[in-house]
Simulated assay, not measured.
Amino acid sequence: MTAVPSEQVAEALHDVAARLGGFFALDTTPARRSPGRQLAHAGLAERARAVNDHYDTATEPRIGASIAHLGLAARLWSPVLACALVHGIVPTMSAVEWSGEGSALRLPGPEGRRAPELPALADAVYTEVDHMLERVESGLTTKVAPRLLAGNSASALVGSAAQLLRIRPDLRTEITFLTRELLEVGRLRGTGRITGPGLAFRRRSCCLFYRAPSGGKCGDCCLVGTRTR
């Protein structure tokens, strides 16, 4: 299996960021001042505290941990999905790091594998993204239910795929197929189900955003249609 040249991976990531924007952005430029911190070495706790401060949920810290985790999951799934489906390259995410004080990510010295050469694309994409999430979760000091975290990953996956589908409807078959396959891999299995052609999704857990004073229920929440206190 041939490795993709670093500059080609960087070009592919830059292209999806420029075309798709937002959570599809993954910076590949070297840090100008201090190097970033790898995801496995803290960082999520700081972002969780910032979320709790913003939504006034410090008395229930798992809310901030869950919402920060959901945002991180979207930041990981989006560029990998887009790069794999648009450019046929699966970026290697083991060196991904926080970029600055916000939630943006950087991938210095990007590497990748060619999607057509992989024996199972879904397994490769899952390994690069969800395994990184699990590494970060292992350091959480706030107790959050494992199935909630798995549901966050699934929700971020399908949300990223749905956004990609809206921008690239010509890739509907490929996007839908890969998303459905991913939902049957590892801990994503049983986290929810696709309910519509536009990749509408209903998860089987809740990210807890509804418990914030100014929060509400997300579109894919298992609590939609039910009353909550």
Rank of each mutant, 00 (worst) to 15 (best):
E11K: 07
E11M: 05
E11D: 15
L13Q: 02
H14D: 13
V16P: 01
A17S: 09
A17F: 08
A18E: 12
R19T: 15
R19V: 03
R19A: 05
L20R: 05
L20Y: 05
G21V: 10
G22A: 13
A25I: 14
A25P: 01
T28A: 14
T28M: 11
P30L: 06
P30K: 01
P30W: 09
R33S: 07
P35E: 15
R37I: 14
L39K: 00
A40P: 07
A40N: 06
G43V: 04
L44R: 03
A45P: 10
A45Q: 15
E46P: 00
A48F: 04
R49N: 10
A50S: 08
D53N: 08
H54C: 08
H54I: 02
T57E: 06
A58V: 09
A58D: 14
P61C: 05
R62M: 14
I63S: 03
G64E: 02
G64N: 02
G64T: 01
G64P: 15
A65L: 06
I67A: 07
A68E: 15
A68N: 05
G71Q: 06
G71A: 12
L72I: 10
L72Y: 10
L72W: 04
A73W: 14
L76N: 00
L76S: 04
W77G: 10
V80N: 08
L81T: 06
L81D: 01
L81A: 04
A84I: 10
L85F: 00
L85N: 00
L85Y: 00
H87L: 02
H87Q: 04
G88I: 15
I89L: 12
P91S: 10
P91M: 09
T92P: 11
M93A: 15
